[in-house]
Simulated assay, not measured.
Amino acid sequence: MISKMLPFLCFLLHIFYVPECQGGCAEVDSMTEAPVGQTFLLGCISCKRREEVEATTTVDWYFRPLGEEEYGHILHYDFPTATITSDHFKYRLEWFAPVKTSDTLVASLYLHNVTFNDTGTYRCTFDRILHLPVGDESFRITKYIEFTVLPKAKREKTAVIGEIMMYVLIVGLQLWLIVVLIYCYRKVSAEREAYEARQALKALKKQQADLKDNCDGINLE
C-alpha cells in the first residue's frame, strides 16, 4: 500500500518545494483501490492559474456508498480546521495538506482502517474566492473518485512480470550451470584418459627398452 502512495507523495513534494517561478503545481489523479484494513490516501488537488492572486478556499468532501443515489457530507475544511461530519468516518479520516494555508491547493484525506462499506464515490469540492482589485470572484471546482475496496492487495502487473522473469532467470542459470558442469566433467575425464594413455605408452616404451638392453647383454658363443 505504501508503495502505491509513494508516487503521489513524491509529486506533492515536488509541487511545494520547487521555486515559485517554475509554477510547480500540477493536478494528479487519486488512486482508486485499496485492500481492506489498510490506510489509503484519497488525493484531491486543485491548482490556481495565477499564483500571485490572493484567495480564500474552503473544501468539502462527500461520499455516496455503492448502490445509493445520495451523497452524504463527511468533512468540511475551513482554515485551519478540518471537521469530520459523518459518524461512519469519525476517527478514521485525517486531513492531509503539505502546506497549511487559507488558500489550500491540496485537500487530500487519509482514510484509516478501510472497510468494504467505504466502497463508493467520493466527491471533493473546492470553493475558492479570488480577491481581485476589482472585487472578489468566487467559483467552485469538483472532483470525483470512484473507490473500490479489495479483499487483499492487488499485485501490480510489473511486479508479477518481474517475479516471473526472476524465476525464468533462476531456472536458466541452473540449466546453464548443469551444462557447464557436464562440459567440465567430460573435459576433465578426457584429459585424464589422455594422461593415463600417455603414462601407459611411456611404461610400454620403458619395458621395451629394458628388454632390448637385456637382450643386447646376452653373449651368444
Rank of each mutant, 00 (worst) to 15 (best):
M1C: 14
M1W: 06
I2Y: 05
K4W: 06
M5S: 15
L6M: 15
F8S: 08
L9Y: 08
L9E: 04
L9W: 01
C10P: 00
F11T: 11
L12V: 01
I15R: 07
Y17L: 02
V18S: 12
P19H: 11
G23V: 09
G24R: 11
C25K: 05
E27T: 10
S30I: 04
E33F: 12
P35N: 09
V36P: 00
Q38S: 15
L42R: 08
G43C: 06
C44S: 15
I45W: 08
S46F: 10
R49E: 08
E52W: 07
V53G: 02
V53C: 01
A55G: 02
T57E: 00
T58P: 00
V59S: 01
D60R: 14
F63E: 01
R64L: 03
L66K: 06
E68I: 02
Y71L: 00
G72K: 13
P80A: 13
A82V: 04
I84S: 13
T85E: 04
H88V: 03
F89Y: 07
R92C: 06
L93A: 08
E94S: 14
W95V: 01
A97D: 02
K100H: 07
K100P: 00
T101E: 00
D103M: 09
T104L: 13
V106W: 00
V106T: 10
V114G: 04
T115R: 14
F116S: 02
N117K: 14
D118R: 08
T119F: 07
G120E: 01
R123Q: 13
F126K: 01
F126E: 01
R128K: 10
H131S: 13
L132Y: 10
G135V: 10
S138Q: 13
F139P: 03
R140K: 11
T142E: 08
T142C: 03
T142S: 10
K143V: 06
I145P: 03
V149W: 07
P151D: 13
A153K: 12
A153W: 06
K154C: 07
E156H: 12
K157N: 11
T158I: 12
A159D: 10
M166Q: 05
Y167S: 00
Y167F: 12
V171C: 12
Q174I: 15
L175I: 15
L177P: 00
L177E: 03
I178Q: 11
V179G: 05
V179I: 14
A190R: 12
R192C: 08
E193G: 11
E193R: 15
A194L: 11
Y195W: 09
R198S: 14
K202G: 03
K206T: 14
Q207V: 09
Q208S: 15
L211H: 11
D213A: 15
C215Q: 08
D216Y: 11
G217T: 10
I218M: 14
E221K: 15
E221T: 13
